[in-house]
Write a protein that binds this DNA or RNA. Sequence first.
RNA 1: GGAGAGAUGGCCGAGUGGUCGAAGGCGCUCCCCUGCUAAGGGAGUAUACGGGCUUAAACCUGUAUCGAGGGUUCGAAUCCCUCUCUCUCCGCCA
Length: 428
Amino acid sequence: MLDIQLLRNDLEGTAQRLKGRGFELDVARFQELEQERKGVQMRTQELQAKRNQSSKQIGIAKSKGEDVAAIMAEVANLGDELKAAEEKLAYIQSHLNDLLMTIPNLPHESVPLGKSEEDNVEVRRVGTPRTFDFAVKDHVDLGESLKQLDFETAVKISGARFSVMKGQLARLHRALAQFMLDTHTAEHGYTEVYVPYLVNAESMRGTGQLPKFEADLFSVQKNENEKLYLIPTAEVPVTNIVRDAIIAAEDLPLKFVSHTPCFRSEAGSYGRDTRGMIRQHQFDKVELVQIVAPEQSYAALETLLGHAETILKKLELPYRVMALCSGDMGFSAAKTYDIEVWLPAQNTYREISSCSNFEAFQARRMQARYRNEKNKPELAHTLNGSGLAVGRTLVAILENYQNADGSVAIPAALRPYMGGMENITLED
RNA sequence: GGAGAGAUGGCCGAGUGGUCGAAGGCGCUCCCCUGCUAAGGGAGUAUACGGGCUUAAACCUGUAUCGAGGGUUCGAAUCCCUCUCUCUCCGCCA
């Protein structure tokens, strides 16, 4: 959520900046609502002040045993107008709030301007894609011929965009998550957290998934009038740890890492990546979350990005870092880097991590604050990044480490998690 | 699932219809005292939003907020209704 003051003070300028990320702010509607709000709010408060004063006088008079009939009569006809004014104010404010909740974050000044993926800027490339002296298979062919990846059974159990893994491959999947968690806790100073996978609507609003993106979420009915949502990323429960909290300055930065499944209905993406594990309704991810003081958030974004990159370096997977352009960033982000891993079978780099600074956008929705030097509560900045998406990392390992005979070498960093095993081989 | 108790500021805790945004304590900030430390004395110390003033802050002023929402009333932390959560006991369960 943007600071409403920003819209009041510089509506045109803000609208212009939002245009840069492809969002058309309804300036006229905001102005209209805001003007109406001002008038109604002033009138409401005026009436409330009058009522409060009269009521106070009634109290004083009664305690002195005086007659209060005159004051009572005076205040009596305030009631209807006050009630109407209060209702109208609530109505206007809820509309203003609805409008505010659907406005995306402003891009940071360092974000390249652009309309789509095409305009993202490559920041660096690390590692060299391996050259193969045989025809590469994609992860689906590899996994299926190893008899450890089974989409047909997944379809039977659940439907499209799910997968079943077995044997060594299932273990490798588990090993990856363990390896990532261990690296971030032992080497990068993150605190591991275990969090709910079902969250309430308030949490989804806090990080920005609601109200705008309900269609992308799975939900379950908790009771007649309450829904719970399956988390699309650990970002939601982990960031909401600090919702409605005031954190002591000395406790910042907070650094959490969490391994969770993620559930996405991905409505609107039908037809994209229908084959394989790239785009699934359910996948595992290790997520990094930081809560920091505002002046530190951009430095924190760089280090968080580095933490995610460390995993790829240790796994010796070639990747590149992209700075997303204004038009390609997510709703809540002020700045985002994507890490893309090399996939030989697709002969291209594919997203495996997304690291963002949200500045105060989520914190404002969540009322997540800390005490600054003046001991005043101030909105914190929130960041997160995948460190990494486990399923896609598995895909990258299969494809990059494949051998001519269809077996797959296990990266050295993972072997301790695989009982010393060096290759994934055919299993029955 | 059954029975009971509860939810008040950063924390503890008083407050059952009126000058209550809320006693008292702890904590914190500033000042005084003290050779240092400890102890002591004094003052201050919620948040959000509106309006005024302002480059901004500070400040002044108003409104709202005592788990959430609704109701009664001129007036609600206090009374009524609904909901949520927490705790205790019982049952069940991994």
